[in-house]
Simulated scan of single mutants.
Amino acid sequence: GSGAFMKEIEEAFKLARIMVEIGVQAGREVIAVLSDMDQPLGCTVGNALEVKEAVATLQGQGPPDLEELSLTLAAYMLVLGEKAPTLTAAHSQVEEMLRSGAGWQKFREMVAAQGGDVAYLDDPGKYRCAELQVPVLAGETGYVMAIDAEKVGLAAMRLGSGREKAGDKIDHSVGVVLCKKRGDQVAAGESLAILHANDSYRLAAARDLLLSSYHIGTQPPSLKPLIMGVVTRDGEQRWA
């Protein structure tokens, strides 16, 4: 998809097969899961914003697509680690860990073990917020047909969440929060996204880029599966 390293599906499967073969030749079991990157995963792009979203997901309150992909990857890891006999059993295990709060508590333990301050996990409001939080409004009524994930990432970078060149300072508080995603209905004047910024000049450039990433149509689009395929040493499965 637009936000992926390999933007065409056949090229993505080709790379996946190569990576799996490298692992197999090194004596490792490897599974490659191909997921849709034709729009951002979840609803946030930016450092602190994404941490807050990850915390919400571990607490069972995250975006459905981020939760689905996280559960899928965790389930495959259990199968690879021989902690579950089947993918179905593994998925049940990780879902129970999420619903019970065990996954969240383990994450807190991991952060503490590495010297992190878990107070920021228990209260994400402790993170510094951007001074400016400005909505990007839809110019027309319709359905979100597509979101160019690469442009959204570039918009976040323009705000300062990433480096345009070596030596640039990263601003951990800035980024993008998506209010509408592919398939959502939107009215003219309604918020497509919220830009979190600390610089009005950067804000203007990011706004134009973000607005151009949205494509609005009159009919709802056909939705693609989030998990597009899986490649293993025995072959591949495709759902898109």
Rank of each mutant, 00 (worst) to 15 (best):
S2C: 04
G3Y: 11
M6Y: 12
I9E: 06
E11Q: 06
F13N: 03
K14W: 11
L15V: 15
V24S: 07
A26S: 11
G27Y: 08
E29N: 12
I31A: 04
I31Y: 11
A32R: 07
D36W: 11
D36C: 00
M37T: 08
L41D: 04
L41S: 06
T44K: 01
G46K: 04
A48S: 01
V51F: 02
G62D: 10
G62N: 09
L66G: 13
M77W: 11
L78K: 04
A84F: 03
P85C: 02
L87V: 03
V94W: 03
E95I: 02
E96C: 08
M97T: 05
R99T: 07
S100K: 08
E109R: 14
E109S: 15
M110I: 07
L121P: 03
D123V: 01
G125T: 00
K126T: 00
A130V: 05
A130C: 07
E131K: 14
V136H: 10
L137G: 02
Y143Q: 02
I147K: 04
A149Y: 10
A155E: 10
R158N: 13
L159T: 14
G160C: 06
G162I: 03
K165Y: 15
K169Y: 09
I170A: 06
V176H: 07
V177S: 06
L178P: 10
R182W: 05
V186N: 11
S191A: 15
L192K: 05
L192S: 09
A193C: 11
H196F: 15
H196I: 12
R202V: 03
A205T: 10
L209P: 02
L211D: 07
S213C: 06
Y214S: 01
I216F: 11
T218G: 13
Q219F: 03
L226R: 07
L226F: 08
I227H: 13
G229V: 15
T232A: 12
R238G: 03
R238P: 03
